[in-house]
Amino acid sequence: MTDQLALLPDDLRVTPKFKVSGRVDGLFATLSPEDFQTTARQVLELGLEGIPGDRHGGFTRKSGGREPWYPRGTEMCNERQISLLSPQELSLVAERMGIAGIRPEWIGGNFLISGIANLSKVPPRTRLVFEGGAVIRVDGDNVPCRIAGASIAAHYPDRDGLDLMFPKVARGVRGLVGFVEKPGTVEIGETMTAHIPEQWIYERA
């Protein structure tokens, strides 16, 4: 153990943990597991399986293109139960695409969170603690896909190529995915506190 500790660089930068607060501006869920686009709700009930009945709900999910290390369709834990979006980032992506706007529902969003700068850069292991007691644990940023791009394109039929443009311009600003750590009820207008964990860069030795 002593030898391993000796390998730690003296200048390793560690960012202490901290908290930052935001607000729930919108809540959404699919009407059935077959839907991609979500529908606005005033209240969401969160269980350990996510949002009951939502497309991305469930304790497990099937692997896909994001998990090339597994054969497609392998059952795995569902760390992508919840999709969280930022109105500022949606506006930025729309600007890059040259369109009037992007609604959270079009790309399958569940939560619209304001007040947290650079939401998509919130690190894994962050705990999102909602005023009513529910807690979502962040898994990481959501990689944009052509399916969401096609959904956006359907709302702008006079524009070509938006389906392919979205994955390119939305990378890094497409929001977060996470899973329910503590069940509870969330309502529009609630305060949410992001508990950012201690962070450091793990570099190649």
Rank of each mutant, 00 (worst) to 15 (best):
T2G: 01
D3L: 14
A6M: 12
P9Y: 11
D10L: 13
D11V: 00
P16D: 12
K17N: 14
K17A: 15
K19I: 07
K19R: 15
K19T: 14
V20E: 14
R23H: 11
G26H: 08
A29M: 11
A29E: 06
Q37I: 02
T38Y: 02
A40I: 05
V43P: 00
L44M: 03
L46T: 05
G47Y: 07
P52R: 07
D54V: 12
D54R: 13
G58E: 01
T60G: 04
P68T: 08
Y70I: 03
R72G: 03
G73W: 08
T74H: 03
T74V: 02
M76H: 10
C77Q: 14
C77F: 10
N78F: 01
I82E: 08
Q88F: 08
Q88V: 15
A94D: 09
A100L: 11
I102C: 12
E105K: 02
W106V: 06
I107A: 02
G109S: 02
S114W: 08
A117N: 13
P123N: 09
P124N: 07
F130Q: 06
E131I: 03
G132F: 09
G140L: 02
V143L: 11
P144I: 04
C145Q: 08
R146I: 13
I147R: 15
A148D: 04
A153D: 06
G161A: 08
L162I: 09
L164N: 12
P167C: 00
K168V: 15
V169H: 03
R171V: 05
G172A: 09
R174A: 12
G175M: 09
G175Q: 09
L176N: 01
F179H: 11
K182G: 00
T185F: 05
V186H: 10
G189K: 09
E190W: 09
H195W: 07
E198D: 02
E203V: 07
R204H: 08
